[in-house]
Design a binder for these strands. Structure first.
Length: 547
RNA sequence: GUCCUCAUAGCUCAGCUGGAUAGAGCAUGCGCCUUCUAAGCGCACGGUCGGGGGUUCGAAUCCCUCUGAGGACGCCA
């Protein structure tokens, strides 16, 4: 809660205590910003909540609470009982203006929450297979995951960002075979990409690069040797490309974990042995099953196939075990919707390994359906028709793409009109916020704010609105982080920008009626600029000083 | 068939722990630049919150059910 709401809760808490000898916890006191101006700056519904418990009607309770508050030295200009029993509050101006010096002092630190070392969070996101370009579906997860990480860090959480590289398994062999075919094609040989291989253009490019460097040196290798080589070359190229694309998209990771390294370090065998030892596995028709049904899954899952190889699940279990053993308390995974059926078995596996399934949070990122020319545009790395994230960035820019994806909750189905997203930029909502920031900067370029301690002239309705929004910023960060809903930050950004545009239109800063008012508005403008800039930073969108 | 996620304005989406008259953007219509950036502001138009029950002072929000959309149900990854 913000500083003002904190104070209001204290006041209400003590009033209820005096009036009814009842101790309310802070969490039970709801303070809201009414949508309607006449309902004051803040309102609370405590009286209605207490009605049942006190066996009295809400308005009577509200009246007693107001009477108690009025006996004290309170910060209100007006207290009013309305509707079914709301208490509406209009706070004194100095309560609102106190936020300005706070922001100017804290500057880039405004909004930072108290550091919470525990629990520690591991946020795993994107984790796209290194078999082709990132497509817009990944971009949605990338934008949301990165913004969530930034927001949680800012809110004070201990966060580590992680990418799981699936560099072992069949899909990689398919990639290797496909790349090999492409290379041989470049060498002028008549070689077909396997039916179930990857047909994307990106492999042609990589094959060409390999050819440019090595010419046809790898042309006559024996099949096995050749596939192994192209597996290595392909992985190097694909992972490098992934890292570059993600960097371009301003997504950072603290840890990259390779699936292959789990095997190399013996972690897969270790995880398997642990499951066996704890008695959660059994043999059936030559395969080894994990009894996930013991923990709520609808059927048991194969860990080791009858041919002796592992299923995808096995290294993934080892990976999650590894994350827990590296000391993270809470594991957050951002998975595509096509993996949601996978959640029960992963949670079951954690339980089987004596960890709590509640410590694994899988947030599903729904598919982003691409629309082009009014028709759905299917994305497939294999058909080669996919729009790459890089194409999207080239067309629309990182800021616009990130804002677009972060501004919508991850769990809703979403349509992205490629024509719209890549068309004339002024239609894009991100510019609304950036433009507000640029406007502030252009004022602040003309005249710098001075240190003042009197803000008593900021009485305009738009000024009050703006200060309320500014005071609310830390709370939005906390909500956004604890609910793991980064799109709330976009709502805040829009609110903040809108508040400023509106103020800008009605209140002249540099040409204010008198010098004192000008200085106060300059300070307010600086405070908004700081807040908006900080907020944009949290979703990885730039705050330009000129546009 | 079983399970998961969703369904809010013409379109794309918000709606924070249940609150007062459900909000933005785009689209449409009308105003506002001799004044700090008009990528803006103001006003208007537009919704049985998919249908039906229930819970309660009060439901878009919670529960049940039906319908519809997408997804998952492999000894693929």
């Amino acid at each position: 809660m913000n500083a003002i709401e904190f104070k209001l809760r204290q006041i209400i808490q003590s009033a209820v205590l005096t009036a009814y000898n009842l101790e309310l916890s802070f969490d039970d006191i709801v303070i809201e910003n009414p949508k309607i101006k006449e309902h004051g700056d803040y309102s609370t519904n405590v009286a209605m909540q207490l009605a049942k418990q006190l066996k009295n009607n809400p308005r009577a309770i509200a009246s007693s609470i107001v009477t108690e508050i009025e006996k004290t030295a309170h910060p209100f200009d007006k207290l009013e009982i309305a509707g079914a029993g709301f208490i509406n509050m209009v706070v004194k101006l100095e309560v609102l203006t106190s936020i300005i010096p706070t922001i100017l002092n804290e500057d880039e630190k405004y909004g930072l929450g108290q550091t919470k070392e525990h629990p520690s969070f591991n946020i795993e996101y994107v984790s796209a297979n290194p078999t082709g370009d990132l497509h817009p579906g990944h971009a949605r997860g990338a934008a949301i995951g990165d913004a969530l990480s930034r927001i949680m860090k800012c809110a004070g959480y201990n966060v580590s960002r992680e990418y799981y590289i699936n560099d072992a398994g069949n899909q990689i062999n398919n990639m290797a075979k496909s790349l090999r075919a492409r290379y041989l094609q470049v060498c002028g040989l008549n070689e077909e990409v396997p039916e179930d291989g990857y047909h994307g253009k990106d492999l042609i490019d990589i094959a060409q690069e390999i050819y440019d460097i090595n010419k046809d040196a790898y042309k006559d290798l024996a099949y096995e040797e050749s596939v192994a080589l192209f597996k290595k070359l392909g992985l190097e190229a694909e992972i490098l490309k992934l890292k570059k694309d993600l960097e371009l998209f301003r997504c950072e990771f603290d840890v990259w974990t390779s699936e292959q390294s789990l095997y190399d370090r013996g972690l897969v065998i270790a995880a398997l042995e642990k499951l066996k030892k704890l008695g959660h596995t059994y043999d059936h028709e030559g395969a080894l099953f994990l009894k996930t049904t013991d923990y709520g899954d609808d059927k048991d899952r194969v860990l080791v196939k009858s041919d002796g190889t592992y299923t995808y699940l096995m290294p993934d279990i080892a990976y999650h075990l590894d994350k827990k053993e590296r000391g993270y308390d809470q594991l957050v995974n951002l998975w595509g919707a096509d993996h949601h059926g996978y959640i029960p078995r992963m949670k079951a596996a954690l339980e089987a390994l004596d960890y709590k399934s509640e410590d694994l949070h899988v947030d599903i990122i729904q598919m982003a359906r691409m629309i082009k020319d009014g028709e759905e545009f299917k994305l497939s790395k294999r058909t080669g028709k996919a729009v790459a994230l890089k194409d999207l960035i080239d067309e629309a820019g990182v800021d616009a793409v990130r804002y677009y994806f972060v501004s919508k909750a991850g769990d809703t189905h979403m349509d992205l009109d490629l024509d719209m997203a890549t068309s004339s930029s002024s239609e894009n909502p991100v510019y609304y916020a950036q433009y507000a920031h640029a406007r502030m900067c252009s004022i602040l370029r003309v005249e710098s704010p001075q240190e003042i301690n009197d803000y008593s002239l900021l009485t305009h309705e738009k000024e009050r609105d703006l200060m309320m929004i500014l005071a609310d910023y830390p709370q939005w960060i906390q909500n956004s982080a604890s609910l793991r809903q980064p799109h709330l930050m976009c709502l805040y950004i829009h609110k903040c920008a809108s508040g400023f545009h509106s103020f800008y239109n009605e209140c002249s800063v540099l040409k204010a009626d008198d010098e004192a008012l000008k200085l106060q508005r300059l300070a307010l403008t600086k405070a908004v600029q700081i807040t908006l800039r900080n907020a944009l930073e949290l979703i990885g969108v730039s705050a330009p000083e000129k546009m």
